[in-house]
Every structure is written in C-alpha cells, then in structure tokens.
C-alpha cells in the first residue's frame, strides 16, 4: 500500500475549520448494525461548523447506516453522536431533528400524496422556529429551487425525479438545520440535474450549514467538499482534505476496485 500521510486514518487530524471550535457534528466510535449483523465497527468522524464533509465508500460499506445512526433512525450499540458538543445518542430521531440534524435519506422519501407546500411545511412544523422563520425559509427555499415555487400547489407525486429530490432537500432545510445529512442526492438523476442539484447544495454550504454527504458522483461532490472520509467494511480506512484527495487518487484507490 502506497504510503500517503493524508490518506491514513489516525495520522490525519480531521477537518479543522476553526481551531478549537466545537464541531457541529461528531461521531465517536460508533458500532451499529441491524438484527444480528454488525455493519459499523467503530466509526468516528467530525464535521466542523459550516464545512462540507464527503463520506465515500463502496456499496455495503455502511455509509447509509452511518447517517441513520447520526439521525437516530438506528440506535448504536456503542459510541456517541455529538451535536455541537451535546451528546444526542440517547435521543429519538424526532428530537434530534428538532435539535438541528436534518437527514435526507436515499430514495427521495417525500410525502407523495401531499402538495409541495405541505411537504415544505412539514419540514418546518416541528422544529421549533417561529413564524417569521417559516416565511423566511420559504423565500430561501424558493430562491434555491425556483421550480418548487412554481409547483407549490402540485401534489408531490406529480413532480419529476429531479424535482422530487430537490423537494426532499428543500424539506430538510426548512427546519433550519445545523447539520444536513445528504444520502446520495444525485442517485438516479440525469447528469444535468445532478449538476444543478450540486450547485444548490454548494449554496447551502455557503450559507453556513454544515454538510455531511454520501455520494457516488465523486467529481462534483469533491468540488464542494472540504474534507473526505473513506468508509470500507464499516470502518474509516482513509481520510484527508478534499484538496489533497485528488480525483485520480480516489479513482485508483477506491473507484477502480469498487466503482
């Protein structure tokens, strides 16, 4: 194995946006799985405030499981999840959402029988912000995704795939999250739509929302990421600053074997 300091777990110090600042999200030694099997064997990662972190890995490595553990859909068997320094490991998913973790799971799980507007409202309803925020959030979201403004009265099931994915992301940011977890937002979208979506995601990042993103389309995701973790067989096997992790590097290291 070619030695590369930036890519060895343990030797890297993790993303450090502002030295000494409490990370927006920290995962410490999480062990988790479903039924009998263990999928994550001690995963640790850090997302500093206002940064974008990319989580890569082959299928079955445990990327989605990691996100589910962070958002509370899955309870870890060991380890902790810290949101701005606060241990939220014991909290159920809906309370974590109210504290500022917004998880967009894979597969565009919007509420298809409701209208676009209702979907967006559900995003804001329970996350404890006042009405002025709601108005502001609508403006914000419609600014990001103008197509949703045009179709706000339409039933969500009538949207195209790309629009549904945008709605899923928009719904999550309606809660004004501190950390946004995106699970393969580009899956199943046409390349042009992916490009569009990635631009929007970059805007979110620039708004100061911390991002933790699982992606397959490495190039566009890498372009907006500050830091990259590579997950394999339920363990972090490599990490480094996105700038240091060149696409060619990742390709040979990770993609060639597992595209």
């Amino acid at each position: 194995m070619a030695p590369d300091a930036s890519a060895q777990p343990g030797t890297a110090t993790g993303p450090t946006a502002a030295a000494g600042a409490t990370p927006a999200l920290a995962v410490e030694g999480v062990v988790a799985g479903y039924h009998g099997s263990e999928v994550l064997h001690g995963v640790s990662l850090v997302v500093p405030p206002g940064s974008a972190v990319l989580l890569l890995g082959p299928n079955g490595a445990g990327k989605s499981t990691t996100l589910a553990t962070i958002s509370g859909l899955l309870r870890p068997r060991a380890g902790h999840v810290l949101l701005s320094g606060r241990d939220v490991t014991a909290l159920p998913a809906h309370e974590r959402a109210r504290l500022g973790i917004a998880h967009v799971p894979e597969g565009r799980r919007i509420f298809r029988r409701q209208t676009v507007e209702e979907n967006l409202l559900i995003g804001a309803d329970f996350c404890g912000h006042d009405r002025t925020w709601r108005t502001e959030a609508f403006a914000w979201v419609f600014d990001l995704f103008p197509v949703l403004a045009r179709k706000r009265g339409n039933t969500a099931s009538t949207l195209s795939g790309g629009e549904q994915q945008m709605l899923a992301v928009a719904q999550a940011i309606m809660s004004r999250p501190r950390v946004l977890l995106l699970d393969e937002p580009s899956a199943g979208l046409a390349p042009t739509l992916v490009k569009q979506l990635m631009e929007r995601v970059r805007l979110l990042h620039e708004r100061g929302i911390a991002l933790l993103m699982v992606e397959q389309v490495v190039a566009s995701a890498l372009a907006i990421a500050d830091y990259v973790y590579v997950l394999r067989d339920g363990q972090i096997v490599a990490e480094g600053a996105a700038a240091a992790m060149q696409q060619s590097d990742l390709e040979s290291r990770y993609l060639a074997a597992t595209l």
């Binding site: 958002s71 509370g72 859909l73 159920p92 998913a93 809906h94 309370e95 959402a97 109210r98 917004a102 998880h103 967009v104 799971p105 799980r109 919007i110 509420f111 298809r112 029988r113 409701q114 209702e118 559900i122 995003g123 309803d125 329970f126 996350c127 719904q171 999550a172 809660s175």
Partner: peptide, 15 residues
C-alpha cells in the same frame, strides 16, 4: 398524513 405515508421520513422531519 406524513406518518401514514412514511414513518421514518416523518420522524426525520421532527414528527
């Protein structure tokens, strides 16, 4: 209505 359609997704939105 959200819970009726997708329980996990509803929980993720704070329901």
């Amino acid at each position: 209505a959200a819970v009726a359609q997708d329980r996990d997704a509803a929980a993720l939105r704070g329901v």
